[in-house]
Nucleic acid binder design. Structure first.
Lengths: 249, 249
DNA sequence: CGTTAGGTTGAATCCTCTCAACAGCCGTGG
DNA sequence: CCACGGCTGTTGAGAGGATTCAACCTAACG
């Protein structure tokens, strides 16, 4: 880490400096001067209780948000008053990239549990980016990587069974937690079965049944929303199992 | 259109000026001066025959590409030597946003038919963007909108039937063609049934069968790769039909 | 203590997959 | 010129997986 932070910053700066996620939502390797030029545009972190709405679908876009703690979901109501869970955000994730183009948030962002997020005014961030290539690149890479991973993941899921979808989902969560320094084998997931189903395109019954199957196979241990991954290799195998159905030899 | 182009440009400039797609791959409403500062970084258009590879999966990212004519597909080989069709590009589309983050192209780009594309050096485009907010915004919006539409579309498809997936696919193509000034009711699609299946997560048999069903219902008329949409309202209804199965009354 | 939301389980239905056979079209090569 | 294999597309039969519907259970909460 290059930011020693031995100067005295105001409370916001010290909050950001002490936030171990700064390498995710801000570019790594910022010089203290660069860091100081970003801090002034940040507001105080926003605290959200479970089910609180961070943004309402359709509201004009002005801010990106960085997740500090907790987790949130994006819920999109499509034309038929039918709602879909279209994204999940974990600590370190940036929220709002998909709102830049349309000019308004394409879905509501709802806290899945007690959460805390930072608000980043996009205009000023963008303007700062013109003078700070590191920051610009960081944002570009972040949105591009998100897009790329999502595209591949969703296209893979389209032709897979419920087992493969769930295994893939769990493994990808596990990987996210690992990268953020949490345990990759044990985590709490604040999503209901219905949430997971909506996100993966399955019914909540199927989600429950499939989890029960996994448990029966000693692949994992679930109690309510507490997940213990027991056989990572086995789950990984399921997650990347090629097709929809095992072809008969 | 604000670019009158009454100055004499070199051949590249005039090619771009005469390209009716410039409002898609370049920002609309460029002043002649702005236009002139973008032209120098463009290369001569690249011509591709059917099945020609524009880029190979894994190659280092350096260029975005703009489709002038024809159509291309992105083919991604995942870990299991299993390949997926992860994107389709039509005239006016920009290719390569998903390569910025990873630093290399996440899939091969292959021409579906005789096509022509413009090569845009990303570094120089990005650098130009720092001094030209219009250009910067245009790129940001483009990538963001792509991401947003794709996210929503794929999540919707995950829980829908083959009929809904295909109807959705056809309507979205129709809309693309309409926006580009082509007929929205009649078009040729250079993709095979297998391509479509891979893109939508269906088998090629199911794609063919479903198209046959549509034809029997007078919704459309398909011969080989020639599509006539007959009942747009009916297709639209199918495309946005809520769920997987019609619930019993 | 009743209510509600979330979760589990069972039975029947139906959609899509797999497998297989065949028709059409194209380019190559005899 | 025609035969041939390969690729593409169509059609049919059977099987399997996920959905729908319904009942029941638990935990949380006023």
């Amino acid at each position: 880490m290059s930011n020693q932070g031995n100067k005295v910053h105001d409370s916001l700066a010290s909050q950001c400096l002490s936030c171990y996620l700064k390498a995710l939502c801000l570019p790594p390797d910022l010089t203290p001067e660069q860091f100081d030029s970003i801090i002034p545009i940040l507001d105080a972190p926003i605290r959200l209780d479970k089910r609180d709405h961070l943004v309402q679908q359709g509201v004009a876009f002005r801010y990106l948000f960085a997740v500090r703690t907790g987790s949130l979901k994006q819920v999109t109501a499509d034309t038929n008053s039918d709602t879909l869970l279209t994204a999940v955000y974990l600590p370190g994730d940036l929220i709002g990239f998909d709102a830049i183009g349309p000019g308004h948030y394409p879905g509501s962002i709802v806290a899945l549990e007690l959460s805390s997020v930072c608000r980043l005014p996009f205009e000023r961030l963008d303007e700062l980016g013109t003078r700070m290539p590191i920051l610009r690149r960081h944002l570009q890479r972040n949105i591009s990587r998100t897009m790329q991973e999502e595209r591949l993941r969703l296209h893979q899921l389209l032709s897979r069974t419920a087992e493969a979808r769930l295994a893939y989902f769990l493994m990808s969560l596990s990987e996210c937690f690992r990268r953020r320094g949490y345990s990759s084998r044990h985590f709490r997931l604040a999503m209901s079965r219905s949430d997971i189903g909506s996100y993966l395109g399955l019914t909540h019954e199927t989600v429950g049944r499939t989890l029960a199957t996994f448990q029966a196979q000693q692949l994992l241990d679930v109690k309510a929303r507490d997940y213990h991954l027991l056989d990572m290799a086995g789950l990984e195998r399921l997650a990347s199992s090629t097709g929809r159905r095992q072809k008969r030899a």
